[in-house]
Design a binder for these strands. Structure first.
Lengths: 154, 154
DNA sequence: CCAGTGATGTTGACGCGTCACTCATTCCGC
DNA sequence: GCGGAATGAGTGACGCGTCAACATCACTGG
């Protein structure tokens, strides 16, 4: 069983780049978000679709679909944000199983204050370091990788 | 203050690709690692440099440097792995402040069993979807982004 | 030698994410 | 209708990661 084909130079570089970036880039951006706006990455992620939804209300199921999270993850995060007053739970009229998540005024102010600086940071730390060609190549390549990934198992 | 320059089509695509991949790719790989080898991603990360170190021993400081983790993160993870018997702490002769981390036999067997399948999975889900040109472009681009990132603030 | 500074490591609190489980409700074949 | 599958949501346990605080030890200038 000693016939494993390890990564060559070129493969290792691209792979290390992906892993290293996943670690450091998100760390830098989340730190900035926390310092400048007092928001965690998870909070920002949920606040964006909520702020764009009509009335600032989304069903928990749909919120999860939009951001690609599972039910329990959404539920935990909404619980935490409810305690901080960014969001409120309401009953769902159409389906008694459902749960509605409503953006509070405090939540709306938080996301409005955080978003512009976050976009600047994304440009500053990621997009700004890339050429137009690289943007296209990376966009196309990563889309392809995403499509090939198994949905929820192997 | 309504003059924020949002992301255009091309930028958004590359950015969404990075974020989406960071989420799903690591999730897929960690699930596979856990199911096939009973190892978490964090465990795998520490076991690799330990298994390559002479004698299977590294100082905690150096272990942290190699994987790019802070002290407390290393300490917490070593504590968890110590409880599972993959690793053992020892005193450091050269520097009484230091702490040595030694790979146990169980730890060595775990990483030897896990590594080949993990490499296959990385190729299957990431590298295999990319052309040689894309590998080079991505490797070079992400290296450049990494170099421009602030070290710990900024 | 000694005080101050910096490096190393550990710990506790807290937020985040997954898994396994439970509960209520809706859907669907019959 | 009815009973079982499927769906939507919440919970507790546990692992992971960061931050702040702390303790210990090394180094350096005087």
């Amino acid at each position: 069983m000693g016939d494993t084909r390890w990564l060559d130079e070129r493969e290792a570089r691209a792979w290390r780049g992906m892993i290293g970036l996943q670690q450091r880039l998100t760390a830098v951006l989340e730190r900035q978000l926390m310092q400048e706006a007092g928001l965690s990455g998870a909070e920002y992620t949920l606040l964006v679709p909520l702020s764009e939804a009509p009335g600032g209300v989304l069903r928990a199921r749909d919120l999860g679909r939009v951001v690609g999270w599972e039910r329990s993850r959404v539920s935990h995060q909404v619980t935490r944000m409810e305690k901080r007053g960014m969001v409120a739970r309401e009953e769902c009229g159409e389906d008694a199983r459902g749960s509605m998540v409503r953006l509070t005024d405090a939540g709306r102010m938080a996301i409005a204050a955080a978003a512009p600086a976050h976009v600047v940071a994304v440009r500053r730390h990621f997009l700004g370091a890339l050429t137009g060609t690289e943007l296209d190549v990376i966009g196309a390549a990563l889309d392809r990788v995403l499509e090939r990934l198994p949905d929820n198992d192997g």
